[in-house]
């Protein structure tokens, strides 16, 4: 079984994000970048499938600037076998990413594509679902448990009301949630080995996808500063404030 794992290079989760002075976007100059944490969970799961003998090959894909190679090197050090880098400077919208992934899927014919449920930069939470739509494959999103037996997959999804169990047939799209696993730290021997693994380069043009933006960012702003809470003396006062001041009841 072949598994594709798309990984995105995003601002490191420890970095405090700052908005550019002209409000055109987020300041990325000299900011530490890392693999999207949900994608790390996806890579870990794919590598575990390989270690369990369920998967035969794990291919990591990243779309972005030259430095996205470093993200791919991390995936390779964690245990992916090879990587594909779609080189592109500038923004890519989820639909473009999904279309390019669909093209790569048609070339690589994997049985499974495992993605992070969303990227922590724009939190779009669209790519996996769009890809499933484009391919006409079944999808299991926000999964916290995965079982594969024969051609059948059973996943546990984290939904608002609790946990939902879904059965899927291969080939399928999975998007992973936080509790699926705890990703490993790449060891130095594996980091060294990863340097020798292949990263194939492609461009959006090779994949026949138009990357002209369809969306325009009007303004990016910091969230408003949180106001201090208020203390109330009685339940009656609380209800009164919720009703008359907050207008929520």
């Amino acid at each position: 079984m072949k598994v594709l794992v798309p990984v995105k290079r995003v601002i490191d989760y420890n970095v405090k994000v700052r908005v550019k002075a002209d409000q055109s976007g987020v300041d990325l100059a000299n900011v530490k970048m890392s693999m999207n944490p949900f994608d790390e969970i996806a890579v870990e799961e794919a590598v575990r499938l390989k270690e369990a003998g369920t998967a035969t090959e794990v291919i990591a894909i990243s779309m972005g600037p030259e430095q996205s190679q470093e993200t791919l090197r991390t995936a390779l050090a964690m245990g992916a076998d090879r990587a594909i880098h779609v080189v592109h400077d500038g923004e890519l919208e989820p639909l473009m990413v999904a279309k390019m992934l669909a093209k790569i899927v048609s070339e690589e014919t994997p049985d499974l594509v495992v993605l992070g449920k969303q990227a922590i930069d724009d939190d779009a939470n669209q790519t996996g679902q769009l890809l499933a739509g484009l391919l006409g494959w079944g999808q299991g999103t926000f999964i916290s448990k995965l079982k594969i037996e024969g051609g059948a997959i059973s996943v546990t999804r984290e939904v608002d009301g609790g946990l939902e169990k879904v059965g899927l047939k291969l080939p399928a799209i999975l998007t992973v949630d936080l509790r699926l696993n705890e990703p490993r730290y790449a060891s130095l021997p594996n980091i060294m080995k990863a340097r020798k693994k292949e990263i194939a380069k492609k461009t959006p043009a090779d994949l026949g996808v138009d990357t002209t933006p369809r969306l325009k960012t009007l303004k990016v702003a910091e969230p408003p500063k949180r106001q201090g809470g208020k203390k109330v003396g009685s339940i009656a006062e609380l209800v009164d404030k919720l009703h008359n001041e907050a207008g929520v009841i």
Partner: peptide, 20 residues
């Protein structure tokens, strides 16, 4: 000797291990 990118990647991983 390791190339800089390899060493940096390892030190980064190690720092995460330390912090997490």
């Amino acid at each position: 000797p390791l190339d800089k990118a390899t060493l940096d990647q390892f030190l980064d991983t190690l720092r995460r291990f330390v912090d997490e």
